[in-house]
Amino acid sequence: MRPFRRHRPAGAAPGSTQVVGTAPAASTAPSAAPAGQPSASTPAAGPSTAGSEQLTGVQHAYLKAADPAKGTITFDLVEWFEGKAAADACKADGVEPAENDWCTGWYIRNNNKKLRTYPVAPGANLRVVGTTGTDLVNADLTKFRATLLQTGRVFVFTVKAGQITKADEVYTP
């Protein structure tokens, strides 16, 4: 059985992410991305309050903190590319392909280090990569935080109504 390299929730297509809110459209609205483009938008720098810019849909990020008592996750949003879009983004960024499909299978761009904190919906499905590296196993917020802070991997998550409803660690070699 071949280990998976990346995980996209069922029904999530690249470019499906949308940013809406009260900030001026020019600073937060992503351009319509064709298939194969990054699956997360990175809004321009600005206030870090969820009220001024509300993410929705599928996102990719690095975990920076999680507070099980408050039920929140703090993250650094990134752009995730796959396939040809990964190769094109690497070329545009002057990054050379490397082992483990870097720039040929996947690529992460992180040009905005702005941190955002969102609540985790009650009953949200949180999963981390299991010990075999080929499966995802359920985790509570404490285990999710500990695992991602240890591995430093990206996670893919879904935001609905201002809450994280699903989050999966993404295996990257």
Rank of each mutant, 00 (worst) to 15 (best):
M1Y: 07
M1D: 05
F4K: 06
R5E: 10
R5C: 04
R6Y: 07
H7Y: 13
H7V: 10
R8D: 09
P9V: 10
G11Q: 10
G11Y: 10
A12F: 05
G15R: 01
S16H: 07
G21Y: 03
A23M: 13
A23H: 06
A25L: 14
P30Q: 11
A32C: 12
A35P: 14
G36S: 13
Q37D: 15
P38W: 10
A40F: 11
A44P: 08
A50R: 15
T56Y: 08
G57D: 09
A69Q: 15
G71T: 11
I73P: 03
I73E: 06
D76H: 13
K84E: 15
A86P: 03
D88E: 15
C90M: 12
C90P: 08
E96V: 13
A98G: 14
A98N: 11
D101V: 06
T104G: 03
W106M: 05
Y107T: 07
R109E: 04
R109I: 01
N111T: 12
K113D: 13
K114C: 01
L115R: 06
V120P: 00
A124M: 03
G130S: 02
G130H: 01
T131I: 01
T132H: 00
V137P: 00
V137N: 02
N138Y: 04
D140R: 08
A146G: 10
R153Q: 13
V154C: 04
V159M: 03
T165H: 03
D168T: 05
Y171G: 01
